[in-house]
């Protein structure tokens, strides 16, 4: 591999990793704060992609569609938390797993009923459809650079909210001692609703951003869910910093694996995960 190709692939890997972080951030946030393992997280990614596809077809504007879809996802998160998740805080993980697996089936069937089983695609918005010269005979699409920056911006915003704001303080307090926070007069119930809804919205926003780069197909949620779990487990369950580092590692490693040993590429990130867990059984940044 030439040095030039090495850097090209490194950029591909980082770009993929940033998107993975965005998807995984909601999963790890919800688990870290609420102790809920949301297996339907991938379905929320799918919902985001399908919603934006649907609204682009109706309105013709990607920006309007993206905002509409994100708001709907936030609302969906609130409803799911209030109607379903709330009942499970005092139950064990198995019950949570059963409920959220059930939600995967429900969302897949809804997708099939509402939008059918054809594969769809969303066009890149006109303003971002250009590309910048890259190597001799390839260029880099502006939209993918933009997507990477959106991911970085959201990562920074998450960091700021969790570490510098009152909401973040409550989130961190709720993580370490739920009863004490409640005793101090904080409405932990609505705090949990907000956190869960943000988690859902983060997954949907990743689906929205990914939509113009990927194909929108049935089952797209499950395929990202597994990669997401690898990212979160490597980084340490519940750690946002861990998810960031884990996502970049997985992105870069799987990109190089795909090029250097294509037939085995799917295996490599799992082997990497096993190695990490052997050395650090709780993940890189476990709490």
């Amino acid at each position: 591999m030439s040095t030039e190709l090495f850097f090209v692939q490194l950029i591909n890997g980082l770009q993929y990793g940033l998107l993975l972080f965005l998807i995984a951030s909601g999963l790890t946030l919800v688990f870290g704060v609420m102790g809920i393992l949301n297996l339907a997280h991938g379905s929320m990614y799918m919902v985001g992609a399908y919603l934006v596809w649907y609204f682009v077809a109706v309105t013709g504007s990607f920006t309007v569609s993206a905002i509409l879809s994100a708001v709907i996802a936030l609302g969906l998160g609130i409803v799911i938390e209030r109607v379903l998740i709330q009942r499970l805080y005092n139950r064990n993980h198995l019950d949570q797993v059963l409920l959220t697996i059930g939600m995967i089936f429900v969302f897949n069937s809804l997708q099939s009923i509402l939008w059918g089983n054809d594969p769809y695609g969303v066009a890149v918005p006109d303003a971002l459809s250009g590309s910048v010269p890259f190597t001799d005979n390839s260029s880099y699409p502006v939209y993918r650079i933009f997507a990477a920056f959106i991911c970085i911006a959201i990562a920074a915003a998450l960091y700021f909210v969790v570490s510098k704001t009152r909401l973040g303080m409550l989130i961190r307090a709720g993580e370490s001692n739920r009863e004490m926070v409640e005793a101090l007069g904080v409405n932990i119930k609505s705090l949990y609703t907000i956190v869960f809804a943000i988690g859902v919205m983060l997954a949907a926003v990743s689906g929205i951003i990914a939509a113009p780069m990927r194909s929108i197909v049935p089952g797209m949620g499950e395929s990202v869910l597994i990669t997401c779990f690898v990212v979160v487990v490597i980084g340490g369950m519940g750690s946002i910093k861990g998810a960031f580092v884990g996502a970049l590692l997985v992105g870069v490693i799987s990109t190089f694996a795909a090029v250097l040993m294509p037939t085995m590429s799917n295996m490599i990130i799992y082997i990497f995960m096993i190695l990490v867990l052997l050395v650090k059984p709780q993940g890189l940044f476990a709490k």
């Binding site: 030439s2 030039e4 190709l5 090209v8 692939q9 591909n12 890997g13 770009q15 993929y16 190597t135 001799d136 005979n137 390839s138 990927r214 194909s215 395929s223 799987s254 990109t255 190089f256 795909a258 090029v259 294509p262 037939t263 590429s265 799917n266």
Partner: peptide, 22 residues
């Protein structure tokens, strides 16, 4: 000749390799 695991769709790195192979 590249054979990817089915149904992986992570193609971007391969497209970069194609550009490099020319």
């Amino acid at each position: 000749k590249v054979l990817l695991p089915f149904p992986s769709t992570n193609f971007q790195s391969h497209v970069s390799s194609i550009a490099d192979t020319n």
